[in-house]
Write a protein that binds this DNA or RNA. Structure first.
Length: 324
DNA sequence: AAACTCTTCAACCGCTCAGAA
DNA sequence: CTTCTGAGCGGTTGAAGAGTT
């Protein structure tokens, strides 16, 4: 099953290839409790037969709660095309302008769709009007934070169900031999779930087994019965662990452990303001930055770009895709 | 329905870089 | 300054699914 070249180092006994739902669950559970910290030692501590690199990649590209799944919108595609013209194959850099999208995902979209579109600009690609006139309509917005209803390409139903509704990456439980009992015991041994959540875990896994005829998106069902408050606390905790959240004047340690809903929302707001300020500072310091020039052209000035930042509602709803 | 070809994308690899010792 | 270690990046691969013959 080995993809790519021969392994560079000894990895005898480690799993390779596609991740199973059980492995996913174990990784998410571990990071939920402890954060990822040191990727190299994480697999051992989490009881995963994977290398640290593999765990990191899986988390970043697939399991993170803020991943936006589904087809790329036309705006996102145009943004990629224009940024690629400016930056080249700097996928991580491009990804930084597309909230919720990963460098790997963008790279794949470029190689499979966008590059071909540019090579054959005539083929119904009235869509990609912007590449020629360089007056990009797109802003790297997340107005599309819920990706479902992108007008085009709904034929690629990988993340859509028959009704065209967005579904999260689903896994069929009965396709795999998941030893739920073992997982629960393992989690209890590690104290992965807070006491108040353990019954929830049991409930959910029981539900999962009972509904074996239907596919389940464990990420969603996972916290199905949790209170909203618990889920938000978890998100805050996870964001802190991932260093996604740095409020200058807020003690995140105490905030995340004792936060109320109000504090949570306030801190999300502060986080947004903090990120906006960082971007403004960055843009102001990079007068010759081609990316800045890109955003300054046309209707998407940096100011408009900032206006396109996700609203508080969209931030929480995006998070909900994983949590609630 | 079967065989074949094409496309997609998750996951692998080696390399580079940054920070610590 | 050098060496070591871990994180991250970009290129590449191949299994699986979709499409075609």
């Amino acid at each position: 099953m080995g993809r790519g070249r021969a392994p560079c180092c000894e990895k005898v006994g480690l799993n390779k290839g596609s991740w199973t739902p059980a492995e996913d669950m174990r990784l998410v559970s571990y990071i939920q409790k402890f954060g990822h910290g040191n990727w190299r030692s994480l697999p051992k501590r989490a009881g995963l037969l994977r290398c640290g690199k593999s765990c990191r990649l899986r988390w970043i590209n697939y399991l993170r709660p803020d991943i936006k799944r589904g087809n790329f919108t036309k705006e996102e595609e145009d943004t990629i095309i224009n940024l690629h013209a400016l930056l080249g194959n700097k996928w991580s850099k491009i990804a930084s302008y597309l909230p919720g999208r990963t460098d790997n995902e963008i790279k794949n979209v470029w190689n499979t769709h966008l590059k071909k579109r540019l090579i054959k600009p005539t083929s119904s690609s009235s869509s990609s009007n912007s590449s020629s006139d360089h007056s990009p309509s797109p802003s790297p917005s997340s107005s599309s934070s819920l990706p479902s209803s992108s007008s085009t390409d709904q034929s690629e139903a990988k993340s859509s169900n028959n009704n065209g509704e967005e579904v999260h990456q689903e896994v069929k439980v009965d396709d795999y031999d998941i030893n739920i009992e073992e997982l629960i015991i393992f989690d209890e041994m590690l104290d992965i779930f807070p006491i108040e959540n353990k019954t929830t875990m049991t409930t959910i896994t029981t539900t999962t087994i009972a509904s074996s005829s239907s596919s389940c998106s464990f990420n969603c069902e996972y916290n199905q019965n949790e209170s909203e408050n618990e889920s938000k606390k978890w998100l805050a905790y996870l964001e802190k662990e991932l260093d996604l959240w740095e409020c200058e004047d807020t003690d995140t340690t105490t905030t995340t452990s004792t936060t109320t809903n109000n504090n949570y929302y306030n801190n999300i707001y502060n986080k947004q303001e903090y990120e906006k300020k960082e971007i403004v500072d960055y843009m102001e310091s990079e007068q010759d930055d081609p990316v800045l020039s890109y955003f300054q052209r046309g209707p998407s000035s940096p100011q408009n770009f900032l206006l396109d930042f996700p609203s508080l509602d969209s931030i929480t709803s995006t998070s909900n895709g994983f949590l609630l």
